[in-house]
Design a protein around this nucleic acid. Structure first.
Lengths: 142, 142
DNA sequence: CTTACTGCAAACTCTTTGCAGTGCG
DNA sequence: CGCACTGCAAAGAGTTTGCAGTAAG
């Protein structure tokens, strides 16, 4: 799975005349291993464990690259910073406004209705985000 | 409608021992008149037409206040800045990734399914956002 | 009068860009 | 070798806070 994604990335680089570097290799493979949303800083930290010389900017630019070739999605949950998500792992989110926990969900019926709505507006869907904010089961009992 | 919202705000202020000022009056009523999402700068501009001395910070803090008492929701569409939305006017959004146009939609069946999903996870919904990104009818033909 | 509010300016946070050196192809 | 990539540092953009003066209750 992750191998497949790496191949897709390499194909994209070759096609665009971009270069395959050690840094991109480390950053992308680490990112693909993380099957949930991850922030730049957090990814940087993981990447530094493997290759300490890698800087914030390179992680940032690599994530933009992944986004550009459709392998990552950028999200903004209300806390000011961007989180990136492995595009292969699409799901929607329920965010607990008390403890910050993020639970993922998926519902094909909702996806279908969404398609229908877009169709009515002659709107061509590229991606979507659906987030539910509230209290998770644990925080309700406090 | 807007009058009703102003009353709600005034009630909240009184309850919390906060003060009712000319600035808050102007900012809130202008905000309530805008039935779509608005940014801080944009609201500031409208407000300055009525009361030129009002500053960015006061608009900002008033919006936080409205958010606090549930009269406004804060949104982050991927462009870096926050938009605020009149809580009375809930709807979901389709955002054109080419021209930036935002179309609003509403579908009760989706809302219902969402409730169902949350129930399955014992999650208590406070609010939600559902955004569809893609190409609007106009931009598809270009 | 007391306490909250306002507006300025400055501090922050996160993102984005410029540049000189590095290294892939 | 040429051109893209890297990492630093600095610039931007938007948000948040400190403070002294102002005004609501």
């Amino acid at each position: 799975m992750a191998l497949n994604l790496m191949e897709t990335l390499k194909g994209y680089l070759k096609e665009k005349g971009l270069k395959q570097t050690r840094q991109r290799e480390v950053i992308a493979s680490t990112f693909f291993k993380t099957d949930k949303h991850i922030g730049i800083e957090e990814l940087l930290e993981k990447v530094k464990n493997i290759e300490p010389s890698i800087g914030y900017v390179t992680v940032y630019r690599t994530l933009l690259l992944l986004k550009e070739c459709g392998l990552a999605h950028q999200r903004n949950f209300g806390d000011g910073q961007s989180l990136f998500e492995n595009a292969g792992e699409h799901h929607d989110h329920m965010i607990c406004i008390k403890c910050g926990k993020i639970v993922e969900f998926e519902d094909d019926r909702i996806e279908a209705l969404q398609e229908e709505v877009a169709k009515n507006y002659h709107f061509k869907i590229v991606s979507h985000r659906h987030e539910i904010y509230g209290a998770c089961s644990f925080c309700q009992t406090e």
